[in-house]
Design a protein around this nucleic acid. Structure first.
Length: 304
DNA sequence: TCGCAGGTAGAAC
DNA sequence: GTTCTACCTGCG
């Protein structure tokens, strides 16, 4: 089945958005298992012309499948209108050329997005995606060749590191200790992840975030261990579709500084304020496009 | 071998 | 309120 909304699937999949690692790719088809109303559904999606072509297997209707893909790939967002917006702003006018068809890649599971985003902090795309895939294989349910991300209630019982596992389990040999977060290469983020899992198991319902205003959601999610302003904005943008978020890291700071402040050094906090003020409802997409424009145009290596 | 990169927490200013 | 430093790991 084809969904007639323009998208560059590969660009969107491989753009490093912290919602989740890219889906499993084989010969241009990206596949994964997605939970729909408690039922596991396996999706296979591929590029067809400028559109998205898909099939699925699972006990749901075609309508439900389309709705879910519309959400995950943000197909309701009007790219033409956004490109007109970019073209009308001198600093941004080159971006649509370099990133044509790039869309948000939204998390079907907000909890996965929270943990992925915590993992991505002070880390490389390669390393955090590997860690998340590792966690899925260790503690997620398997469906065919694919693994769902574990629930928060599954992660509260996972050991932090080898010493923790050796102390608290029956295993006698430390080299056999692999049932722990640190074995996934998450480093010092392990306790943040487990505390976050406890929070979402016992105290907070992530679905509540969808009902909040951006400001309220930001303050709420900022209380989660391992979540600062950058990670909070990633979670709100990629996990909850708050498009007014402007996740600001050192790269966005360098790019904004170059494009708008004559290369002057400004704080990341100020960049975030500037982005939200300047771009409004387009802030999230501008941030996404800025980053990939800088990557592809060679601006990034120039700013280093 | 070691320096570097990258957000957050917690302490210091 | 703003600035400094330690944190874990992979890469060059």
């Amino acid at each position: 089945m084809i969904i007639e909304k323009p998208i560059d699937l590969e660009l969107t999949q491989l753009s490093g958005q912290t919602s989740q690692p890219p889906w499993c790719e084989a010969e241009g088809t990206f596949s994964n298992v997605v939970d729909i109303d408690g039922k596991p559904v396996i999706f296979n999606v591929k590029q067809s012309g400028e559109f998205l072509d898909f099939d699925y297997s699972g006990d749901i209707s075609d309508r439900q499948a389309v709705d879910k893909l519309n959400y995950i790939f943000d197909l309701g967002f009007d790219l033409d209108k956004f490109y007109k917006y970019l073209d009308n702003h001198a600093e941004l006018e080159e971006m649509s050329k370099f990133c044509n068809g790039l869309r948000l890649f939204l998390a079907p599971d907000p909890f996965e997005c929270v943990i992925s985003s915590i993992c991505s902090a002070n880390n490389s795309i390669k390393r955090w995606t590997k860690s998340i895939s590792h966690m899925k294989q260790n503690w997620g349910n398997q469906y065919g060749n694919y693994y769902a991300f574990p629930k928060s209630s599954d992660l509260v019982n996972v050991y932090l590191d080898e010493e923790d596992e050796l102390d608290l389990s029956n295993i006698q040999d430390i080299s056999m200790c692999t049932n722990n977060l640190k074995s996934c290469g998450v480093g010092y983020r392990a306790p943040y992840m487990r505390k976050a899992s406890e929070l979402f198991t016992d105290e907070m319902n992530l679905q509540e975030i969808f009902k909040m205003s951006y400001d309220e959601a930001f303050e709420t999610i900022l209380k989660v261990p391992g979540v600062g302003p950058k990670v909070a904005d990633c979670i709100l943008l990629y996990g909850f579709n708050f498009r007014e978020a402007f996740p600001s890291d050192v790269w966005i700071k360098r790019i904004v500084s170059h494009l708008y402040f004559d290369g002057k050094d400004i704080s990341v906090a100020k960049v975030r304020e500037f982005g939200m003020e300047e771009f409004g409802e387009n802030a999230g997409y501008v941030q996404l496009y800025m980053f990939h424009y800088a990557r592809k145009s060679g601006l990034m290596s120039k700013l280093k």
